[in-house]
Amino acid sequence: MTDFLQMGGYAPYVWSAYGITLVVLLLNIWSARRARIQSLARAAETAGEERPRRRPTVRQVQ
């Protein structure tokens, strides 16, 4: 196991390359999902505008 982690002396290079790849992939997944979900949320707001709007209560404004 330690042999595996040491990567024949190249541990810093191999693990940093794989680590950065994982981070970039995860960031991509997070931001792509967020782009889709946020667009839907914005569309839901404007789609609701056609229906009679609820008047904001005083508490909501504050």
Binding site: S39, L40, A43
Partner: peptide
């Protein structure tokens, strides 16, 4: 994922999208 977001942004006024969004919510 991003394409669906783009379609939603660009088709915001289309009837099919309004239907889809109200069905979802």
């Amino acid at each position: 994922n991003r394409l669906q977001g783009q379609i939603v942004e660009r088709e915001r006024d289309a009837r099919w999208l309004r239907q889809l969004v109200t069905e979802r919510t």
